[in-house]
Design a binder for these strands. Structure first.
Lengths: 182, 182
DNA sequence: CTTACCATGTAAGGCGTTACATGATTCA
DNA sequence: TGAATCATGTAACGCCTTACATGGTAAG
């Protein structure tokens, strides 16, 4: 019980705003949703079929730029299902940071190795932060156009705030490790 | 390739510092490691057997307080394996926050529902933060006793910094949502 | 003309959880 | 005496990723 599977809700959530193909859903997962909820084709396409068979979404063929596509739309039942899920409290908030794991056991590898891990982490976070700041900018400019943007902005700002805290920590952590090196 | 499975390294990491039983390992997972790497009995005990069969750990029976225990120790090979893993760059740093997911689709449920999710999240984070601050305090007092404490402290401080950023965001997010409610 | 991107899927298998099963000891 | 904690495990199953398989179109 307490199904962990939220992928159906995520897809329904995306479809609640606009009709999408599986490919487009994957792109959303790789950009907007990437930093707090990822998914691969191997879970997206089967879930899409499943949603259709449960009557929560419908599919219809379409063509665009001479290309054949399978476009999915949410149904009324799908919208109800989504709303029920949104009402329920969030169950799973967790992080899995291998960087922290390696740092936790850092004594076994030494300070300079730990610093390398911190630097690699810092670079990754800086790249992500740049992306999020760009997204924030666009969202702010379109705030009045669409109410959903307000919620997208909220999550982007969560990421920005978090990543900035990470970067601060990186500096402090390196300082602390260097002191021990002397 | 690029095995995701790190549980063997985590256990080896714990054993590199002290001999432990499976039960004690689980307790570490539920306390110290909880916020960045969790694990259940269903993965700990089989991994322990696996480590023994690979020669990375050894088990020996012991008794303590009249209770029978199976105590595991790391071997030299285990220490080598751990060091190799520590050398390699971290591959998997990711979060899965259902709260953010529900917020991202918050428009479908409305501002007051979104605020409820934020409040629940805030409560959870405040509890975690209290725990981490307690851990930080203890670690700081024992910094000179054991070099490993420095690394434990580093990860605790990561959590503290991150959680404080979360809490700041909670307030800002609620303010933003309330403005829209008027 | 070939690289990159658009587009849809499946199969195998890894990883890890939940729930179950069992039993001893300690403490209120 | 009953609840909590100590202690060790297994079985079933859920979820998801990786890798594979296929083919069209756009742009340089």
């Amino acid at each position: 019980m307490a199904l962990e599977k939220k992928i159906d809700c995520v897809i329904l959530g995306l479809l609640s705003h606009e009709d999408l193909t599986g490919y487009e859903i994957k792109k959303r997962m790789d950009t907007t949703l990437r930093y707090f909820w990822g998914a691969s084709y191997g879970s997206i396409y089967p879930t899409l079929s499943d949603l259709v068979s449960r009557g929560l979404a419908v599919k219809h063929d379409g063509t665009e730029n001479g290309r054949t596509k399978i476009i999915y739309s949410i149904t009324e039942d799908g919208r109800l299902y989504l709303k029920e899920w949104l009402k329920a409290p969030a169950e799973k908030d967790e992080m899995r940071y291998e960087t922290l794991l390696k740092l936790f056991f850092g004594n076994e590898g030494g300070a300079s190795q730990a610093i390398s891990h911190i630097n690699a982490f810092k670079d990754k976070i800086e790249r992500e932060l740049t992306y999020l700041l760009g997204a924030e900018d666009i969202l702010k400019k379109n705030l009045d156009r669409d109410d959903t943007h307000k919620y997208y902005l909220l999550t982007a700002q969560f990421g920005i705030k978090t990543y900035r805290a990470y970067l601060e920590w990186c500096e402090e952590a390196k300082t602390m490790l260097c002191k021990g090196e002397e």
